[in-house]
Amino acid sequence: MIEAGTPAPDFMLPDQDGNEVSLESLRGQTIVLAFYPLDFSPVCTDQLNVYQEILPELERAGARLYGVSVDSAFAHKAFQRELGISIPLLADFHPKGDVARRFGVFNEERGISQRALVLIGPEGIVDWSHVSPSPLEIPGANLIFDALEYAAAA
């Protein structure tokens, strides 16, 4: 798991609409990456649904949230529509799990990402990271706000 204080590895991934999103292009903004195992798996569904509800507060706090999994952009599009959510989803599809691997959250055995949160500051430095002890355990949205508060105070 990538540690706080280290520069976040740059990445370029397509979102659900095929738009390329790179860390470089997000410079100057606070970013929350929510790595999750798979689209359409029941637990992830709860996670993104709840995160959707806190989007307005996140935006007010000046942070942008992205979901990341190894699914393709087309699967992401369908998943987004199925849930009725607007959180942009990035496809860590090819090479599969490459970004998750570089952030140290890829589960090589299962071929999917662990459930993890990474807060990246405007300078591209990791401010906070958290990985769930089990894929069934969803990190509460409160942790994101704790981390934002902590980063703002630092």
Binding site: V43, D46, V50, A141, N142, L143
Partner: peptide, 12 residues
């Protein structure tokens, strides 16, 4: 109620 739940770590 929802906010207090989020703060307490409710996700499901």
């Amino acid at each position: 109620d929802f906010r207090s739940g989020v703060r307490a770590g409710v996700v499901t």
